[in-house]
Design a protein around this nucleic acid. Structure first.
Lengths: 296, 296
DNA sequence: CATTACTATAGATTTTATCTATGCCAAATA
DNA sequence: TATTTGGCATAGATAAAATCTATAGTAATG
């Protein structure tokens, strides 16, 4: 027994005709006929007297039809509820994003989300991980997108995706080994960007002694960073999503890493006591889906 | 969306575990997992927070679960109803059957029906078509099994099956043409049996002039009839279901009819104003099924 | 008696549910 | 910190079902 079969018998009862009911249900008369028969066999009850004209329900059939109506009505109600829940995505979401994610991810997710949830107002700020965590705990933000793991155990995180980190820059060889990385002239974003610390940790960089001694400048954006790298024939590491937006010329300066993969985790982050739980869960699912689509 | 999926999420909610729910629902964890996911996608609502331990429903999920319970409960109620309707087959059915049907059909249907409906009491009488119609109209019978068409327009009939009529007897040739039938020494049941009239009409028999002039005897049962046929090297016509029960020796005396098929209709017959409609419909379906099984 | 309107059935096709096997992740354990 | 364990997700194959097209059968109608 399934809900369609119940809808079919209700339609037959309503139209007093198999063929009209079939039209109404958008199936062929053959299908409807077979399904009604199947249901009758499963219940072991003859629901319709096909010889009467117009077709009429048997005594037992009327009983079944009554119950079928209940089932179908409640199923419809469930579907309605789901629609109304989806429409209920409204209100304000204060979202913080760290810069190294914001510059690529927002491009992918923002438009679809704004379209899908016209009643949802996004207030987005670019902040460092530290600022972001503080704002979440204070309730100044509903939601953060940052790179995990993070130090706070009060905040909850949900992994959105893992993002490869790719090498960019200028070396003699076409590819390079991980162990050789610390020998390169490395340029990084300035202090405060978590990506900087991650890269230092991942690549086991110590003090980088290959920079010109009279240069202390470090970049605050990838744009500036890449210009530095090109000028000084250095090297740096970029998140995959950002690297994908680069010009073909710059893409040509990508370097293969011989073994091992560098990657970072990008996660949603929220403080449970204040959490707009249902909105967060939906956005998490949506963002995962959008990134997956984008990468395929 | 289907009822199974709803049962699955209810089970997950109850057991707070996909695998336990799967056991409970008698499906594998993989199946349940996929079905829950499919439902979530169709509704576009994340029902469960799989990261929580134990698993818990989301806010939206709880709403959906409530509605799902309604649907499933009503579906169960429908199934219960159908069972109780089936058990409700009780009371008395006064059934009249004409002899030429009774002698073969009752053998096939009686035992299964008595077993299937232990609370149904059958009172069966063998009667001619005329008596039977009268009894039906007077309410002395609930139901008749006879050969259609019949003359009364007050009674309603429902075709159960068509039964071939086969030739039995003694002729020179191995097979015979329909046109030659009236040249044969024909023996028939005595007056009052509708099969007699049907055969006369079907085979266009006139007065049969080949019987011994000093014999007027006609049979009231096939048993007697066949003995007569054998003794006098005559011919007769038997219904298929009866012919099938004959001894091998007698089966050897069956004659092929070269072209055309002789057959009769066997139908249920009832008088609508008094009709035990639901019982009749069920019995009709059951008998059709039983005869079909018997013939295959 | 032919036509019309309607339902049932057969066979092919497509869709869906389910299973097995395996992957992946996190929490517990040694 | 490696390893096991428990639990959910995913992939690919298989089985089950719903659906379609085409056609047969049946009853009512002109």
């Amino acid at each position: 027994m399934n809900i369609h079969q119940l809808e079919y018998i209700l339609a037959v009862d309503q139209f007093k005709s198999f063929s009209k009911a079939a039209d109404y249900c958008h199936v062929t008369q053959a299908t409807l006929s077979a399904m009604v028969k199947k249901l009758e066999e499963e219940l072991d009850i003859v629901i319709f007297d096909r010889k009467a004209s117009p077709i009429s329900a048997t005594e037992n059939g009327r009983e079944i039809l009554g119950q079928a109506l209940q089932v179908v009505a409640h199923a419809d109600a469930l579907l309605d509820s789901s629609k109304s829940i989806n429409r209920k995505m409204e209100g304000k979401v204060k979202l913080g994003v760290i810069p190294t994610i914001a510059n690529s991810l927002l491009l992918i997710i923002l438009k679809p989300l704004l379209e899908k949830y016209p009643a949802l107002v996004f207030e987005i700020q670019e902040q460092t991980t530290q600022q972001l965590m503080k704002s979440l705990l204070e309730g100044k933000l509903d939601l953060g997108i940052l790179s995990t793991p993070i130090s706070s155990s009060d905040l909850e995180t949900e992994l959105l995706y893992k993002e490869k980190l790719v090498l960019y820059g200028h070396v003699q060889k076409a590819s390079i080994k991980k162990a050789e990385l610390s020998q390169q002239r490395f340029f990084l974003l300035q202090d405060g960007h978590c990506l900087r610390d991650q890269i230092i940790q991942l690549c086991e960089l110590k003090k980088n002694k290959f920079l010109p001694v009279n240069l202390r400048f470090e970049a605050n954006t990838f744009e500036t960073l890449l210009n530095l790298v090109d000028d000084f024939q250095g090297i740096t590491i970029l998140p995959k999503l950002y690297a994908e937006q680069l010009s073909d010329k710059r893409k040509a300066a990508m370097i293969e890493l011989e073994e091992g993969n560098l990657e970072r985790e990008v996660s949603l982050c929220y403080y449970r006591p204040y959490a707009k739980w249902n909105i967060i869960k939906r956005l998490a699912a949506d963002i995962k889906e959008l990134v997956k689509e984008h990468l395929s």
